[in-house]
Design a protein around this nucleic acid. Structure first.
Lengths: 177, 177
DNA sequence: ATCTTCATGTCCTAAAATGGCCAGCGGCCG
DNA sequence: CGGCCGCTGGCCATTTTAGGACATGAAGAT
């Protein structure tokens, strides 16, 4: 259903289910529907960064429970790769960027320029930054692995500390304390 | 799901089903999903007047078959009232206007000003005109029964001939030829 | 070193334009 | 008079348009 304007009310709109979980980078909100995981939101996430509505709590949803399990393993240092159905929602360009994120291996990083090149649009560097900032499925679609060409972290929806934390967690010399 | 922009692709969006039927006012396209009838479109309808997508043909959909049956009866002069679930999709204002349409009895007319007053917004006369023009469920939501205060027909998405035809069909002195 | 410029897609906002109107006037004509 | 144009100005929701801001980076000038 195409919605020409934002105020349109759709009598038949989908519901999404959510569940929260604690993590080293703050309370995470997992969102899904039957098609897969749709979002992992930060504690103080800008509501207009990702829009999913209406939302409905469901702590038992199988997709959400599986996502929580894998995230727990990840934070415990026992998992490097996520395996679950993802349900991205965005423009064609954004989908391309987000798909590119999924190809960055655990522990590696890419620059915004590299991502732009990878999706065949080498000049759309800032656009990649913007799309990255709109990545709904944080952590699992590893937008934290994209940094400036000069090595600076430059920005992160979940806060720079979180970006740094995640990169440190993925670095080889990370030690569980 | 709120769609801030039109280009957004929603992997989980609803499908609508459609079916066409001949009628005295040209080929009609009926559109529905499981929540009810969503549209009755004219043969050369402006595609941006009503937007429903993705569309998928299904000539056997129960809602569509029932709608076709009732429309056939209507054109045959054997039905004055439609009875089916409708699935309007629009802004709050538009919904109010369209709901008001449904209160106009067979064979009667209202002016745009009367509709505006009825929805509690007596000055929103032109806005009523615009909303009327966006009525997705033609004929069944009888936008053809709304005419100018001076009695002129003033406009119709399906063409003025169709508006005249429908009003004639509903007039008491109409005779089946 | 530091600064400017430019390239790109998306979204936000504000401002302008657009209509299936209509009441109020002034003209015009019988 | 009295009816019938036709113009004008105001009304309102929605759509369209335009400008700016961004999770950047390479190149060229100062």
């Amino acid at each position: 259903m195409i919605c020409p304007n934002e105020n349109r009310t759709d009598m038949t709109s989908h519901s999404y289910f959510y569940k929260t979980m604690p993590s080293p980078v703050g309370l995470l909100t997992l969102v899904a529907n039957d098609h897969g995981l749709a979002a992992v939101l930060w504690e103080n996430d800008d509501p207009k960064r990702v829009r999913l509505s209406p939302l409905q709590e469901d702590t038992k949803h199988p997709v959400l429970m599986e996502a929580e399990r894998q995230l727990k393993d990840y934070f415990a240092g026992k998992r490097e790769k996520f395996e679950m159905k993802l349900n991205f929602n965005g423009t064609e360009f954004q989908q391309k960027v987000w798909a590119a994120l999924l190809t960055i291996p655990f522990g590696e990083t890419r620059s915004y320029a590299q991502i732009a090149e990878q999706i065949g649009n080498p000049n759309a560097v800032r656009a990649v930054g913007a799309a990255n900032g709109k990545n709904p499925i944080s952590i699992i679609a590893p937008c934290h692995r994209v940094i400036g060409s000069n090595g600076k972290l430059t920005g992160f929806a979940g806060g720079m500390e979180s970006k740094a934390f995640l990169l440190k967690l993925e670095s080889k010399d990370f030690v569980l304390q």
